[in-house]
Design a protein around this nucleic acid. Structure first.
Lengths: 344, 344
DNA sequence: GTGAAAGCGCTAACAC
DNA sequence: GTGTTAGCGCTTTCAC
C-alpha cells in the first residue's frame, strides 16, 4: 500500500541505490538523476521507513531525553508538571524536528539495582543517535559508563561538573548565585539567610558556593543557612525557622523559586511584610515567580536554549564533528521581592 | 557484538522462531522450552531490536504525542514551559514505560498547507502504534482523516466534542465552569464578569456555556463578557477594562489561570483589593495559581490521569479491545481568591 | 509443539 | 556516476 524505495526506483527508472543516494544527499549523483528521483518521491508522496533505515544503517534518527522516573512519579502524584523538563523538551523538540530526527522521552529508574543491565538493553533495542542527560542525573557514572561503552553520543544538560566525559551544556550556577548575592548586598542587606537545595543536585552545591563567596568578598558570613529540598513546603519550613528567630535576616536567598515562594508564604504566615521587612530571591524563573506577591527576583535559566544547543551538538557528533562544551548565559531578573532594607 | 535472536536460539538449542514465540508470549510453547529460552535471554542480556521488530512485524512499540508546533515556538520564545503538555507527557510516559512501549513527541505544524501530506508521510515513516492528540488540535478533521486512513489508533485528549471518531478522554469543561459559577453565586455574588478563551479551543466555548447556564439558572445575566486569549496579558487587559467601569463586577471568572492571574494583577494596578472587593477564579490549577496573592480558586484538571487513561486505551486497541470514551473527574479547588462580596 | 524459509524496506560493500 | 547483491534482526507463513 505505502510506497517503498522500489516503487520510487521503478517510477524514476533508476536503481534503488540511486534513490537511496539522493535521499541521503550522497555525493556523485548527476543532476538529472536527482531530479527524476525527486519527482518520483513527490508524486508517490514517499517517505523512507524509519525502522528499515535504522535496521540496515548506522543511524536511527532517534534522540532520547533520559528522565528520572522517581521524580516523574513524584510530579504526577502531586498533580504538577515539570517546568524545567518541559522547557528542555521544547528546545530539543524544535531542533530534532528541523533536522528530521525524532525525540523520544525515556523514563529511567536510576534507583534500580539493575540500572546498568536495563540501560544497555535499552540502548541496544533503540540504537539511539544521541542522548540528552537531564538533571539531577547528568553526572551518574553508571550511566556515563554504559553510554560510552555503547558508543552513543550524549550531552549532559545542566551538569555542574566538567567530568571530561561526553559533551556538556550548562550555565554557571556558581557565578549566578554570586551575582544574586551581590545584588542583595548592593541593596544594602547585611543579614542574609540562605536556603540550600538537595545534595543530589550538583547545582545546589554550586549555588551555595557562589553565595558564600560573594559574602566572603564583602567580609560577611551567612546570617543563617537552612537545608531545603527544592519544594515549596521545605522553603516554607526554612522561612518559618529563620523568621521566628528574633535576630532574623533582612533578606533570604533560596536556591530555587519554589522554596523562595515558600519563604514568602512563611513571611505571610508570620506577618512579616515583604518586601519591606524581608527581601526574598529565588533561582530558575518558574511560572509562579512572576505571579507571586511580590513578584520574585530570580535567575532565569535558559533551559530551552541549552537543550537546543545540546541537540545540535548531538547532531554534529553524528556528522563526525566534535563540539566543545558550551556555557549558556543566565539573566538576573530583578522584580519586586527585593529592595533595600528598611533600617540600615 | 550485541546479542541477536540467533545467539539466544543457539545458546538455548532451539530455533529462532521458538525464541520469538517466548518473547511474544505466543501460545503453544512447552514449559521446558520457555525456561531454556528465558535462561539464554538472561545470560546474554538480550533485548530484541526495536527496528527489526517494527520492520518485520505489525507493531512498532511507539506511541506519539502530537504537539502544536506554533504553540511550542511561542512558549520557547517566551522562555516558559507548557504545564498542560508536561503533565500530559508524564502520564503517557509512565504507562508507556510499564507496557514496554516508547513515547515519541512529534511537533506538528497544523498551519502548514501541506499538513496532510506531511502527516501521512510521518505515519508511514514511523508506523506508530498509537497517537495522542492534544489540545487545541484534538478535533482537527484533516488529522483525523489521515489517522483513520492510515489505520492508526488515536485518542483525542481533552477534546470537547464527541465526534465519534477515534477514542476520546476528556473532562466536562462545561459542567466544571457551571460548578465554578455556582460557587461564586453561592458566595453571594450577583455581578459576575467572564473572560473567555480563544475560539480555537473548544474548551473555551464549553466553559463559556457553563458559565452562562449557571447564571441563567439563577435568573441572572452576565455582568460583563470580555475576550481573552489564555495569556496573562490578555487577562490583565480584560481586568483593566472591567474594573475601570464604575459599575464593576464583584467577581470575575477567567477561563484559565493565566488570565485570572492577569485579572488579579489588573486589580492590583487599579488599587482594587482582592479578594475583599473582587473575587477572582480561574481554571486549570497551574503552578502559579497556588503562589499568587491571594491564592487562586480554580478547577484542577487531571491531565496526567487523562493521558494515562488515553495511553492505556491505545494499548488496549492494539490488543484488539475497543475502549469507550472516558470522562475524568475534575476538582474545584477553593482558595483565598474567592469570598463573599462586601456589600451585598 | 516446533522449525525452515521467506520476506519487511532499507543501507553498505562492491562491482561496473 | 550508477547498479547489483547481501545482509540488518526480526515476524510471518506454512510445513511437519
Amino acid at each position: 500500500m505505502a510506497a517503498t524505495i522500489y516503487d520510487v526506483a521503478a517510477l524514476a527508472g533508476v536503481s534503488i541505490k540511486s534513490v537511496s543516494r539522493v535521499l541521503n544527499r550522497e555525493p556523485n549523483v548527476s543532476h538529472a538523476l536527482q531530479e527524476k528521483v525527486r519527482a518520483a518521491v513527490e508524486t508517490l508522496d514517499y517517505r523512507p521507513s524509519l525502522s528499515a533505515r535504522s535496521l540496515a544503517g548506522a543511524s536511527s534518527y532517534l534522540i532520547a531525553a533520559f528522565v528520572d522516573a522517581s521524580l516523574t512519579l513524584q510530579h504526577m502524584r502531586s498533580g504538577r508538571g515539570n517546568d524545567y523538563l518541559s522547557r528542555l523538551e521544547l528546545g530539543a523538540l524544535v531542533e530534532c524536528h528541523e533536522a528530521g530526527h525524532h525525540l523520544l522521552v525515556e523514563l529511567i529508574d536510576y534507583g534500580s539495582p539493575s540500572l546498568e543491565a536495563r540501560l544497555s538493553a535499552l540502548l541496544r533495542a533503540l540504537r539511539l543517535d544521541g542522548v540528552l542527560l537531564t538533571p539531577p542525573n547528568a553526572d551518574d557514572p553508571r550511566v556515563l559508563d554504559i553510554l560510552e561503552r555503547a558508543g552513543t553520543p550524549f550531552v549532559r544538560v545542566g551538569a555542574e561538573r566538567d567530568l571530561d566525559r561526553g559533551m556538556r551544556v550548562h550555565m554557571d550556577d556558581r557565578q549566578a548565585a554570586q551575582d544574586m548575592t551581590r545584588h542583595l548586598l548592593s541593596l544594602g542587606h547585611r543579614k542574609i539567610g540562605f536556603v540550600s537545595g538537595p545534595a543530589a543536585y550538583a547545582a545546589s552545591q554550586a549555588r551555595r558556593e557562589g553565595f558564600l563567596q560573594a559574602l566572603a568578598e564583602a567580609g560577611l558570613s551567612p546570617h543563617a543557612m537552612t537545608d531545603g529540598d527544592f519544594t515549596f513546603d521545605s522553603g516554607r519550613r526554612a522561612g518559618a525557622t529563620m523568621l521566628s528567630d528574633p535576630r532574623r535576616p533582612t533578606a533570604v536567598f533560596a536556591s530555587n523559586d519554589d522554596m523562595a515562594l515558600g519563604v514568602l508564604a512563611a513571611a505571610g504566615d508570620l506577618g512579616v511584610p515583604t518586601p519591606q521587612a524581608l527581601s526574598v530571591c529565588g533561582f530558575d524563573d518558574t511560572p509562579g515567580a512572576l505571579f507571586s506577591a511580590p513578584a520574585l527576583t530570580t535567575i532565569r535559566q535558559p533551559v530551552a536554549e541549552m537543550a537546543a544547543a545540546a541537540t545540535r551538538m548531538l547532531l554534529a557528533a553524528k556528522r563526525g564533528e566534535a563540539s566543545p562544551s558550551q556555557e549558556i548565559d543566565y539573566v538576573l531578573v530583578p522584580r519586586a521581592s527585593t529592595q533595600a532594607p528598611l533600617e540600615n
